[in-house]
Nucleic acid binder design. Structure first.
Length: 426
RNA sequence: CGGAGUGUGGUGUAACGGCUAACAUGUCUGGUUUGGGACCAGAUGACUCCGGGUUCGAAUCCCGGCACUCCGACCA
C-alpha cells in the first residue's frame, strides 16, 4: 500500500485524554481513534493488526471448534433464565430512541457481554444425542460490557473484540480432556503472536460456576491490572485472588517464595459444568436411551486487548514495535528520491511493484516529505523491517535495510532484497 | 459505584474578572529544500462542553448537568 493513499496520518502530540502507552502510541500512529471511554475505532492500520491477530486465533481455534457468528443483541428472557439479568452488572441494554423510558419499552434487548445464553439453546437444538457430543462452537465478535471504569486504552474497554468458544460434553471426564487440549491450543496462540515467553497459565477463581479453579492466561506486563504469583520453575502462576492459606495447603505451594508480578489477562478458560445446560433444560440421550446432563466449558481470548498488550510489551520510546506475525505490513519501503522522475524514484517504484506482486505486504512511503519526517513516522508505525531507497543507497550499491528493533542498518543489493523476501518471488 | 482532577480552533497549550481569546502544530497557496519530525511568505480555522446564575463586564467566580482522566471498589 502507498502511504500517500493511507487516509490516516501520524501525530506528534499525544492526545491529552490518554495516559496509557498503548492508547497514546496507537492514536499517534493512526491505528485507532477514540469514540468515548473504552470505545475505539480501528483505523485501516489498526484493523490490519487486529485482523492478523484474529486470523491467528481463528486458525488455532479451527482445530478444536466450529466457527459461527451469533448476534450481539439478545432477548432479556435468556438472561432471566440463567439468573444473570440481575447478577451481572455489566449488562448493557438497548432502548429504542423513540421510547422515553425502559419501562415503557417492551422491546429492550441485552447487548451481549458473553454468549452462554445464546449458544446453549443453539447447541441443544442440534446436539441431543450422545452421538453428537462432544461439540464446540466459537466466534470472533464484538462484545459489550458496561465497565464501571474503562481504562488503559485497548486493555479494558466497554466495547471490544472477543473470541469466545463453548464446548459441550457428555460427561465431566470428556470436558476435562477437551479443557486440557484447549490449554495447549491457547498457549500456541500466545506463542504465535509473540507473547509466548511472558504468558503463563494462571490458577484463578472459578467464580460462581465451580469450586474448582479456572485458568487464566496472564501476560507479564507493567500495564497489567492483575497481580500474579509466578512460579517460573514449574511454569505456572497463581492469581492474587486465590492466594490464601487454604489454597496453599490444597495446592501444596508456598506462595511466599514466589515472584509477584503485574500481568494482564489475555485469555481465560472455565469449566462451566452443568450450570447453563440446566438453566436451558439441555440434556442428551445416552446409549441406553436415558437423559443425561450436558457438561460445558467456555474459553475466551480478547484480540483487541491482545493488540493492546502487544503494544505495551514491545513499544519503545520511538514508537510501536510489532512482532512479524501481527505487523500491519512486513516491510516499510521508503523512497528518498529528490525528483519524481529520477532513477531513484523509479527504482523505488519498481521494488514496490515487484515485492507487492510477489505477495510481500509492503507499505511504500511515496510521500513528498523530508527524510526526517519519514524516518520518524516509520519508527512510530513500527513495521519490523525498513528499506530505504535513496541516491546515497544506490551509490553504495543497493538499498539500506534496517530492523525496527536495531540501531544499525546495512546496504544490500536489490537482488539480495528480492531473495530475502522471495517466498513467491521469481 | 465512591473520591479527586480536567474541559479553550482538527491536535497540543496560553490568557489578572477588563481591548478584536494568544502561541505552536495541522490544513491550504506560492517559493525553497530533501539521510532523523527543514525554511520563508501568505491564508484558513473557536458561540472557550451544555444549561442557569453573580457582575457594568465571565474562558476566568458560583450552581446543575454531561464528558474525559486518575485513585479505589468492581470485573463470567
Amino acid at each position: 500500500m502507498r502511504q500517500s493513499q493511507l487516509y490516516t496520518k501520524t501525530r506528534k502530540e499525544a492526545p491529552a485524554d490518554e495516559v496509557s502507552k498503548n492508547a497514546i502510541l496507537l492514536t499517534r500512529a493512526g491505528f485507532i481513534h477514540k469514540e468515548m471511554a473504552g470505545v475505539y475505532t480501528f483505523l485501516p492500520l489498526g484493523l490490519r493488526v487486529l485482523k492478523k491477530i484474529e486470523d491467528i486465533v481463528r486458525r488455532h481455534m479451527d482445530a478444536i471448534g466450529n466457527e459461527l457468528v451469533m448476534p450481539s443483541l439478545s432477548l432479556r428472557e435468556n438472561w432471566e433464565k440463567t439468573g444473570r439479568l440481575e447478577t451481572v452488572d455489566v449488562l448493557m441494554k438497548t432502548m429504542p430512541a423513540n421510547k422515553v423510558s425502559e419501562e415503557k419499552s417492551s422491546n429492550s434487548y441485552i447487548l451481549c457481554p458473553t454468549h452462554e445464553e445464546l449458544i446453549t439453546p443453539i447447541a441443544s437444538e442440534y446436539a441431543r444425542s450422545y452421538k453428537d457430543l462432544p461439540i464446540a462452537f466459537y466466534q470472533i465478535q464484538t462484545k459489550f460490557r458496561n465497565e464501571a471504569r474503562a481504562k488503559s486504552g485497548l486493555l479494558r474497554g466497554r466495547e471490544f473484540r472477543m473470541k469466545d468458544l463453548y464446548s459441550f460434553h457428555k460427561d465431566e471426564a470428556d470436558l476435562q480432556k477437551y479443557y486440557e487440549e484447549a490449554k495447549k491450543v491457547y498457549m500456541n496462540v500466545f506463542r504465535e503472536v509473540g507473547l509466548g515467553e511472558d504468558t503463563f497459565i494462571t490458577l484463578a477463581s472459578g467464580g460462581d460456576f465451580t469450586k474448582d479453579f479456572s485458568h487464566e492466561f496472564q501476560t507479564v506486563v507493567d500495564a497489567g491490572e492483575d497481580i500474579i504469583y509466578l512460579d517460573r520453575k514449574n511454569n505456572i502462576a497463581y492469581n492474587k485472588e486465590v492466594v490464601n492459606e487454604e489454597n496453599a495447603k490444597r495446592l501444596n505451594v508456598d506462595f511466599e517464595t514466589l515472584e509477584q508480578v503485574k500481568a494482564c489477562e489475555v485469555g481465560n478458560i472455565f469449566p462451566l459444568g452443568t450450570k447453563f445446560s440446566k438453566a436451558f433444560d439441555y440434556t442428551y440421550m445416552d446409549e441406553e436411551g436415558k437423559k443425561q446432563d450436558v457438561y460445558m466449558g467456555c474459553y475466551g481470548i480478547g484480540p483487541s486487548r491482545l493488540m493492546g498488550v502487544i503494544t505495551e510489551k514491545f513499544a519503545d520510546v520511538k514508537g510501536l514495535v510489532w512482532p512479524a506475525s501481527v505487523a500491519p505490513f512486513s516491510l516499510h519501503l521508503i523512497s528518498l528520491a529528490k525528483e519524481k522522475d529520477s532513477e531513484t524514484a523509479k527504482t523505488a517504484e519498481d521494488i514496490y511493484t515487484k515485492l507487492t506482486n510477489a505477495g510481500v505486504e509492503v507499505l511504500f512511503d511515496d510521500r513528498n516529505e523530508s527524510a526526517g519526517a519519514k524516518f520518524a513516522d516509520s519508527d512510530l508505525i513500527g513495521i519490523p523491517m525498513r528499506v530505504v531507497v535513496s541516491d546515497k543507497s544506490l551509490e553504495k550499491g543497493g538499498v539500506e535495510i534496517k530492523e525496527r528493533t536495531k540501531e544499525e542498518s546495512e546496504i544490500i543489493s536489490i537482488e539480495e532484497l528480492f531473495a530475502t523476501y522471495k517466498k513467491n518471488c521469481e
